[in-house]
């Protein structure tokens, strides 16, 4: 009963939907205020979601209807599942085993693949270009993102998010060594979330809406929700991996601290996408491999040295 409550209501399914809609609002509001605009009212993301649910679903005749309909559901379920493995404001998560970092990575990569499948099988030209860009981009940001997060796991000497939380609670201030990794992962996360400067797969002025071009109604609502939840999961993951402090304090206080950490990461994301222009796909790939990957290697090297000296 407890587990069911955990999965379906709090902090599972229901909580994450509303939380991600709230996060979308905060992101849009900060973005607007940074641009000296008023921004949307608080219920805008929810209203958009309900509106899309009420709209007609259109499946292109030339598309493969099965794959076309499967993609959004696959994407949504995988990101929600990923959320269950991440400790939020305690050192424990619902599911945990040695190696769950890999599972979370895998579950976070699935939506990108789902976007590719959905876009490819919708057979629209714009969607196809968007899908191919989706995959091309995946090979660029995934490596620095994983290396950044794994460098932190390396220091904790574990493959489990839960044990990582335990390690950093036992060794406070160790997270300070991982700040470079945080920067790298945050920038790579923008690629995963398809936000400026890495919103190349859905660059509006080039390929309309990329993979999402042919989607409408309920399926578009799911896809948009997927992106929102991905943003929450991504920032929660970064909050846990790079700011793992205050995890075992009073639950109410811990929850507040958790919210603050997520808000901090969300505002950094909003700020970053305010001050840059969209890159071209070739520029994006060379940026990731020329700058982010070497820096991530440096972070790993630093952590290896630390492990050999401080933790002896």
């Amino acid at each position: 009963m407890g587990a069911l409550f955990y999965i379906l209501i709090f902090p599972g399914f229901l909580f994450i939907i509303f939380f991600s809609l709230a996060i979308e609002f905060i992101d849009r509001k900060i973005y607007a205020r940074l641009q000296n605009r008023v921004g949307p009212p608080w219920f805008q993301p929810l209203a958009d979601f309900i509106k899309l649910l009420a709209k007609e679903d259109i499946v292109p005749t030339a598309s493969n209807p099965k794959m076309f309909k499967l993609a959004p559901i696959l994407a949504l379920t995988s990101v929600i599942t990923a959320f269950l493995y991440i400790p939020l404001w305690k050192t424990g998560a619902l599911f945990s085993f040695n190696g769950d970092i890999i599972v979370v990575f895998y579950l976070l990569t699935l939506p990108t693949l789902a976007f590719f499948i959905g876009g490819w099988y919708s057979t629209s030209l714009y969607a196809r270009i968007g899908s191919v860009r989706c995959l091309t981009q995946l090979f660029a940001y995934e490596v620095p993102l994983f290396m950044g997060i794994l460098s932190s796991a390396l220091l904790a000497d574990t493959w489990s998010l839960k044990e990582m939380a335990v390690f950093y609670t036992q060794h406070p201030w160790f997270w300070m060594f991982n700040l470079l990794g945080f920067g790298i992962s945050l920038i790579s996360l923008l690629g995963k979330l398809e936000k400026v400067p890495f919103d190349i797969p859905e660059a509006e002025t080039e390929v309309v809406a990329g993979s999402f071009t042919e989607y409408s109604g309920r399926m578009l609502a799911y896809l948009r929700l997927t992106l929102d939840i991905e943003m929450v999961v991504g920032s929660v993951l970064l909050a846990l991996v790079f700011f793992p402090f205050g995890l075992n304090i009073n639950p109410a206080l811990g929850f507040m601290l958790f919210l603050l950490k997520v808000l901090f990461i969300i505002s950094l994301i909003s700020l970053l996408r305010t001050v840059v222009a969209r890159l071209r796909i070739d520029q994006m790939i060379s940026f990731c491999w020329k700058y982010l990957v070497p820096l991530a290697l440096l972070q790993i090297l630093v952590n290896l040295i630390l492990k050999g000296t401080l933790l002896k």
Binding site: N36, E204, T205, T274, V275, R278
Partner: peptide, 16 residues
């Protein structure tokens, strides 16, 4: 031009 290269902040500022 800002909008075309995905730099919406420039769009908002220059139109303001």
């Amino acid at each position: 031009a800002g909008h075309e290269i995905g730099f919406d902040t420039l769009l908002m500022y220059s139109w303001r």
